[in-house]
Amino acid sequence: MPLLEVNGVNLSFGGLRAIQNLSFEVEDQEIVSLIGPNGAGKSTALNVLTGIYPPDSGEIRYRGTSLLGLKPHAITALGVARTFQTLRVFLNLSVIENVMTGAYCHSHSSLLATALRLPSWRREEMRIRSLAEKNLAFFGDRLMGYRHDQPAYSLSYANRRRLEIARAMTTGATLLLLDEPAAGMNPNESAEMTELIGKLRDEAGYTILLIEHDMNVVGNISDRVIALDYGQKIAEGTFESVTSDPKVIEAYLGHQTGGEA
């Protein structure tokens, strides 16, 4: 059974058909990339998967459980976590707190235990903190030590992207949906991010659905690539086969007729 099944999903905003009959699957421990020109519906697809927009029709299953009708937090608790293209870290919380917020869905201390600081609360808080520290340590010395107690707004752009990934990891999800993790990064940082996404799968065992414009990143790590245009899937397969697909080239470069450049 695939980890994630998307079957015939449709979504329109008024007259605009943002997603049309989209179907694909993601297997366990796979890295799948969604590509496509701006406005192709990639981010919208992610919003549908995480429950922000309910689809008009179709079926979405995670480990066989339907995600339709679930609130975003419930979907996250099931094991699907995401990052945002337009960074949405909690700017005025400290770095470590940002990551610890991700642990809400798998912590259970009651209000009473919290107010009285009972041992059960202490144990859980310790567990959350060490989990957060472990996840931050995944990014090497970028987000280490002295950084933990600084407010998130003091972080650089690239570090905020790393922080978002750490936060998503802390939710305990197995499927990470990364929305343009290398956007706005310089070539060095993109290369580092590529390596990191590979590590997320190989060392930490995450399954990854990726949206990315940087074809170096996509080509280097994707097991499979899905191309979207106008909300429809136009190609699926290996990076080479998809990027050489005429339909994909047309989608990116426009319809080419002889004579006109």
């Binding site: 976590a81 005025n92 809400y104």
Partner: peptide
């Protein structure tokens, strides 16, 4: 800070 991000990060 950001209600939508909080919801998506698993907070009801």
């Amino acid at each position: 800070e950001d209600e939508l991000a909080a919801e998506v990060m698993g907070a009801p």
